[in-house]
Simulated assay, not measured.
Amino acid sequence: MELKKTPLYDEHVKLGGKVVDYAGWALPVQYEGIMKEHKAVRTAAGIFDVTHMGEIIVKGKDALEYLQYIFTNDLSKLTKNRIIYTFLCYPDGGVVDDLLVYKIDEDEYMLVPNAANTDKDFKWMIDNKKNFNIIIENVSDQIGEVALQGPLSEKILNELTEEDLSEIKPFSFKKDIIIADVKALVSRTGYTGEDGFEIYTSSEDIKKVWNSILEVGEKYGIAPTGLGCRDTLRFEAGLPLYGHEISENISPLEGDLKFFVKLNKEDFIGKEVLEKQDKNLSRKVVGFELKGRGVPRENYEIHKNGNKIGHVTTGYFSPTLKKNIGMALIDIAETEIGNEIDIIIRNKPVKAEIINKRFYKR
């Protein structure tokens, strides 16, 4: 099957990006190297092509009521031009997807699902539409998106707009603002643990935005950045990745993300099971630091006193902290901070200690 290409595909090739298959998309995993790109985002700025992410519009008289029914978080608190992070759950509490919801207007919302899940989410939403008076549209093909991330993001973007970007607070956005002579929606969001922006335009205009940001960002030390460092950055910040810390088999509560599940709101899909689980949680995602040698990798077994108690969900050598760290789903009895566990690396137990999974704070 031929890979889908974003409007920026030729730019990635021009810049020497190492293109790989990511959820059916041809995207750069790196340009000059994951470590270098990771450092650029932590110290200056990086720009990611995230056009592969989905965009689904929900609008109509019952939009809020419908979204309250399908999502775990409480959208009744969401005001216009604000954004909320939430989960779509199956009736058994497993996760369909984690996504951002943008409140465009009183009766209109934009949802941003993970690329690999967009079609599945859209189908799930249509299948659970019931008699709600709403329109659900998958507009992913019409929209291009880049993420500008890092401490110098605002300085760089300021050079391309008349808008006062300091007015855009974290988890809020402005619509129809001009960036590099192009009309865009700009939100103060990202997936790196750094300050930054996500910029949405039409598919035709995204190339101009990408090139303009790289051009003005050069003097600030900007780097084009690939999927490789997107993962190391999100992981250091303790942010979950679908299919790892949450999945159809790992609920938001097991993923240690209870904050985004409002069990006190009216009924929503999965509520009943999540309420029961909350009273008797048997396993949970934690952070750990390796004390011995080796790099913890996804799905490595975790033991305690010779018994299996769980597995690694994500593991890396952290470029910022210079330590081998990871996240793991383990038995609830072993999740205490400071607890010692064994990670099985090449059939040998390597000592590790449970620590806070927010490994990095800016």
Rank of each mutant, 00 (worst) to 15 (best):
G54Y: 04
R42W: 05
M35Q: 12
P7I: 11
R42A: 07
V50I: 15
P7S: 11
Y22G: 00
E32I: 14
I34D: 01
K39N: 13
H38F: 09
A40G: 08
H52G: 04
K14F: 15
A23L: 08
A26S: 15
M35L: 13
M53L: 15
A40Q: 05
K18F: 07
M53I: 11
K39T: 14
V50G: 04
A45N: 04
W25G: 05
D21W: 02
W25R: 07
H52P: 01
G24A: 11
I34N: 00
Y31M: 09
Y22W: 14
Y31C: 10
T51G: 14
Y9K: 01
V20A: 05
W25N: 03
L27Q: 03
D49Q: 07
L27D: 04
G46K: 01
I34P: 00
W25H: 10
Y31R: 01
G16P: 09
Q30F: 12
I34E: 13
K36L: 15
G54N: 04
D21L: 06
R42D: 03
A45E: 02
K36Q: 12
E11N: 11
D21C: 10
A26E: 14
Y9C: 07
L15W: 14
G16L: 10
V50Y: 07
V41F: 11
I34V: 15
L15D: 09
P28H: 10
D21A: 08
V13D: 00
G24D: 12
V41W: 04
T51V: 08
M35P: 00
Q30T: 13
H38D: 13
G54P: 02
I47N: 01
I47S: 02
V50L: 14
P7K: 06
K14V: 09
D21K: 04
H38E: 00
G33P: 03
K36H: 02
K18H: 10
K36G: 09
A44I: 07
G24N: 11
V41A: 10
G17H: 06
Y9H: 14
P7E: 09
G24M: 03
L27N: 01
G24I: 03
A26K: 11
K39Y: 07
P28E: 04
T51W: 05
V19K: 01
K36C: 03
D49H: 06
V20Q: 02
L27W: 09
I47K: 00
G17Q: 05
T51L: 13
D10W: 06
V41Y: 07
L27V: 12
T51N: 13
P7N: 12
A23V: 08
V50D: 03
P28Y: 05
E37K: 01
F48Q: 00
H38V: 11
P28A: 15
D10K: 12
V20S: 08
A45D: 09
R42M: 14
R42H: 04
Q30I: 01
G17M: 12
V29I: 13
Y31H: 12
R42S: 09
G33D: 12
